[in-house]
Design a binder for these strands. Sequence first.
RNA 1: GCGCCAGUAGCUCAGUUGGAUAGAGCAACAGCCUUCUAAGCUGUGGGUCGGGGGUUCGAUUCCCUCCUGGCGCGCCA
Length: 547
Amino acid sequence: MSAVDRLRAALVQAAVAVGAPADVAPALERPRDPSHGDWATNLAMTLAKPLGRKPREVADALVGALDLAAAGVAEASVAGPGFLNFRLATGDLAAGLARILEAGEGWGRADAPVGRTVVVEFVSANPTGPLHVGHGRQAALGDAISALLTAQGWDVTREFYYNDAGVQIANLARSVQARLRERAGLPLEIPEGGYHGAYIAEIAERYAAEYPTDARGDELEAVRAVAVRELRKEQDLDLRAFGVRFDVYYLESSLYTDGRVERTVADLVAAGHTFEDDGALFLRTTAFGDDKDRVMRKRDGTFTYFVPDVAYHVTKFERGFTRAVNVQGADHHGTTARVRAGLQALGVGIPAGYPEYVLHQMVTVMRGGEEVKISKRAGSYVTVRDLIDEVGRDAVRYFFLMRKGDSQLVFDVDLARAQSEENPVYYIQMAHARLSGIFRVGEVDPSRVTGDGVVWAALDTPEERELVKALLDWPTLVAGAADALEPHRVANWLLETARLVHTWYHKHHVLGEAPTVLAARLALAKAARITLANGLALLGISAPERM
RNA sequence: GCGCCAGUAGCUCAGUUGGAUAGAGCAACAGCCUUCUAAGCUGUGGGUCGGGGGUUCGAUUCCCUCCUGGCGCGCCA
């Protein structure tokens, strides 16, 4: 049992003794101000009303009834409006580090698998151009969320949905065709809704090399195939540069070829939630929380994009994913209600909140104090590759993950690059490198540092106590971040903890200290190194041994 | 007009799900390198938590209402 659990159990006993119901669940938290102690609870304040007594009075009674030894508490006091503050003996507090040393890479991971699978869909870019900054934010978010869920014991599948059917692909093919005709000496006529980036001309060049007999691109289907293939390859390179891998690439076109789109419409009609109006087929999504009914089949007989969307999510459920998380830009938020409504209308037992959405706000890129909108290669937007090339993968990942998805993000390239020495990500990595340096310089094999025989009470400086507490809180932090699908909590926690490491490192020496202190501090250094490395790994950021 | 998200230090943003004296980075200023990495440490200044109500022991956090900004509201995808 961990130190908190012991304390909680003892508090329940004390609470019941003063008249609280047996199912009382005291909330324990770290006081903001360390001088208040190691743990605090507002239990007395929450009990005051039901017990009909003043908060401070209840607090005094609780302290009186608390078995300090059983709680593992060295000192309990009442403060402020009725907070109970607890201080642990340093030895009891720091002994928790032994668990970190044992767990190693498993520190912060759930002990047991959840036994369920979850599909995390992200990026899902149209294969019509290189990935842009928005995709970058999404890639960082989706990958980190996947890692968080994996750490919590979920069986995670990372999935990329290719919108390779429909108008935009036709426009892509005709855009490449236009470039081919330009090469053949004809006037350049990029079609309405076509693509203007330099990469279109590159694809045309490759097509011409591959099909010398069709230099003008008259075989539109062949042009389309080459364009999609080349852009998928291109996006794959972008993702590889960013260190993101997918388990499944799901093609929208397959939903048409395997009849799923037709079947979904038939199933919805059979479910009785459709109606015809003015020659079009509607789904009554308003019956399931949408704000207006949606057209499924247009008057011209073709389907709206909404139908394959529903069909696709049905496959997720049918493939055994009882949970689905979609990471998308906030500009898609209008579609969430209708997709869920479509799934509900089918009445096949898909949960109401399926899929879950993590929507992120837009990214604006600033350089030289001005918004950057144009990338030469892409023609109209800044690409992921532009950013990685300019500031490096670790920094890009961190910048995208340090903010809540709900916040609009300003990515200041000058800042990320020019301040590369004052960059938060380097600050965290530096803490890891410094800790690694202790073992390297001291010629101590970290694998031989265990908790055995360590006198934990030797870690009794304020800096050490704070660092120990932060490290011990790591699993709770990870669990909370995973639960909320919010990787930025990890990013901010790492920054705070790196600060504690730097402060401790600067103030206290390890090598050359007396044996008892040396052993304890080596154990602390190793525990901190493990925790930082595990945190960086969750965010997909490297943990260098030296910098 | 309706819906979603945001509004916190000069700038960019956190704020542990309602707690104690609201924080970090950058920017500004002043110090610290014969000792495991100075990509570091220490200190100083900087706030009407958009405005106004409400809920309660207690609100940056929850509710209502206004203001401002972003996004979305098609038989486009």
